[in-house]
Nucleic acid binder design. Structure first.
Lengths: 139, 139
DNA sequence: TTCAATTGTAACTAAACTTATTACAGTATG
DNA sequence: CATACTGTAATAAGTTTAGTTACAATTGAA
């Protein structure tokens, strides 16, 4: 019944980077803000980098910064980069083909899943990192 | 990163009950259609019963039937009954209060979470069990 | 060139969660 | 009273997630 917290942590991390004002922020620093281990952060940053949302540099005075302006980072991109992308999973086992319901339900559930996931994506697309930063600043 | 399959299984189960035409369906039969253990089904039915979506009867010739017509069962009700209700989780650990971002991000994420979850609920409310049955029959 | 700082990632451990299974008490039905 | 169910506890097994240690590779600077 538990949902995944990767997305929330990713939004937190990106907000920290945005506050860094373009400077390279170290995984150690981010980890302290999120209150977790630097390796956990680096793994997350690796995903965000694959999605072209951040840029990391190795070596001394290395670190990570945003790859785009906060206004150009939609939360749907963040979600796609770090979450499984599914509000609910399809059943792990294949239904019984001999049952009239079991025979057809999988395809119906799959289509339903896509419709729901699409609506989540559209909702998340309405928010950018800038919106998040504004809310953090207002508080 | 894995989502939960309780909702999908619940929709499957309710479809089987609807196809039962008001007769009491046994957990054994449902389990065979879903391809899982009867106890797993009974636990799920217990949740659906708490939400007033089904009625179960113990004893010989016991079993479960729908508590309402398929057209009156919204998928949002099913989701609420068996899923955690959250598209993404808030971070398990409290952020660092000494960081300007960490100090305020939790509340922002919480509000964002509510907005997203609300939109999922609204989307699921657009579908009823009847819609699912129609799709199964069409296939 | 050498040293210190940092990322990237593998390997492993620990914790949490989900699913499956067994067992059996309680309750209808005939 | 015997049979056939549900409800649920207890437990085990499997899967996923988070945390930790370790270290190679890279960079920048003394």
């Amino acid at each position: 019944m538990a949902a995944n917290s990767q997305f929330a942590i990713a939004v937190h991390v990106l907000t920290v980077l945005a506050k860094g004002g373009g400077e390279r922020v170290k995984s150690d620093y981010i980890a302290q803000s999120v209150n977790t281990n630097p390796v956990v952060i680096r793994r997350l940053l690796s995903n965000l980098q694959d999605a072209n949302l951040v840029v990391s540099h190795v070596g001394a005075s290395g670190g990570t910064s945003l790859a785009k302006l906060p206004k150009d980072i939609q939360l749907s991109e963040v979600y796609k980069a770090v979450a499984c992308g599914e509000v609910f999973a399809l059943p792990p086992k294949k239904p019984n083909e001999n049952c009239p319901v079991g025979k057809n339900i999988a395809a119906v559930l799959c289509n339903l899943q896509k419709e729901i996931d699409k609506s989540v994506n559209e909702k998340l697309r309405q928010f950018t990192l800038r919106d998040v930063i504004e809310r953090v600043d207002e508080a």
